[in-house]
Simulated scan of single mutants.
Amino acid sequence: MPIKAVVWGENVHERENAVVAEIYPDGMHAAIAAALNEDDAISATTATLQEPEHGLTAERLADTDVLLWWGHAAHGDVSDEVVERVAEAVWSGMGLICLHSAHFAKIFKRLMGTPCNLTWREAGERERLWLTSRNHPIARGLPDHFELENEEMYGEPFGIPEPMETVFVSWFEGGEVFRSGATWRRGAGNVFYFRPGHETYPTYFDPNVRTVLRNAVHWANNPAARVQGVTDAPNVPVETALEPITERGPKLHADGEEGFR
């Protein structure tokens, strides 16, 4: 059965900026989903900010293995109720991949518990991404480094908690460096942040970027059943607790051998 991925996009720039609309006439979310669907083991659909419940109903999240999130201009328009719903899905085992400006998305900041701030400059500079973990599944099939001719610069310090793994580090023409690919685990869910993807550049048509996205979906997928009651803290009644051990010392087992209880 293929991995069920949902690509969530704001779908704001594509409707308001002619440059973005020319590059991504069907929306960035559609371009990302098309990249994922090049892999027969992935079945990707899309959702946008403008849909009821932002396209992320409880039923849809329950049927989603990996959610990809691209946000930038409308972080504040995302419903807090939906954010909590997505967070609970991640804690229970759904994978989450946050792209580019989604470092400032409510859901990413909710799961990281930090400001997720950084420095930036939009100047169409060359970005060189270096693999820092060559054998990581997300880096499968990639060269030691690859370049994007035009991208927005993101620079350190990056206000995130220490990653579980750093897969990519970027260098920009201005000399800045940035942790461009990092992983975490939140509850039973795998989380990956991938930096490239500014809306006015055709980043999501780059073959290496598309490889990263497909690899990341495979990595983020948790095939185990969802954990239930992830936000519960139940009281365990005394009568259902394990029977306490009250006797100490050697006991005879059924086979007659002596042991300790």
Rank of each mutant, 00 (worst) to 15 (best):
V66M: 05
V86K: 06
N215H: 01
L129E: 13
I97H: 04
P52A: 10
T45V: 13
A224L: 15
R248V: 13
R214N: 07
G256V: 06
A225E: 13
H198F: 03
E122Y: 15
A5C: 11
P161K: 10
R134H: 15
A216N: 06
E257D: 12
N190C: 08
T132W: 06
W219I: 02
R214G: 03
G256W: 01
G141H: 10
D255E: 04
D255W: 01
T46W: 03
S43I: 08
R110P: 07
I138Q: 04
A123V: 12
M28V: 10
L252P: 09
T231P: 07
N221S: 13
V66N: 00
A47I: 02
E156F: 10
M164V: 15
N235S: 12
H145I: 11
R110K: 14
R185V: 15
N222F: 00
N235T: 14
G187C: 02
L99Q: 05
E247D: 12
P115H: 04
I23P: 00
V177P: 01
N215K: 04
H72I: 10
G197P: 02
V66W: 00
R261K: 12
F168A: 10
S79E: 11
A74S: 14
P163Q: 07
R126G: 09
V217R: 00
G174C: 05
P207Q: 06
E147K: 13
F146N: 09
V78E: 08
V20M: 12
P163S: 08
T166Q: 03
T45M: 01
P202E: 00
S92K: 05
M28A: 12
E243P: 02
R195P: 06
P207C: 00
F168H: 05
G155D: 09
G159W: 07
W70H: 14
R15L: 15
R195I: 07
H54M: 08
W69A: 04
G9H: 05
P115T: 03
L142W: 06
E152M: 10
L61V: 08
E125N: 13
S133V: 09
S170H: 04
M1Y: 12
M153L: 15
F194Q: 07
G9Q: 11
R128M: 13
V230R: 07
E14L: 10
S92E: 10
V230A: 05
R185K: 11
D232S: 13
K106N: 08
C98V: 14
V86I: 11
K251W: 13
R128W: 10
N117G: 14
N150W: 12
G229I: 00
D65K: 01
V12N: 12
E165S: 11
G175P: 01
F108K: 06
L67E: 02
T114N: 05
V7S: 09
T48D: 11
M28N: 11
E125P: 05
G141F: 09
A123M: 14
S101E: 15
G159M: 09
G71V: 08
R185G: 06
P250N: 03
C116R: 07
H145F: 14
P223Y: 02
R214P: 01
G55W: 00
E199T: 11
R261I: 15
H72D: 13
C98M: 14
P196Y: 01
G55R: 01
D255S: 03
A224W: 07
F205I: 08
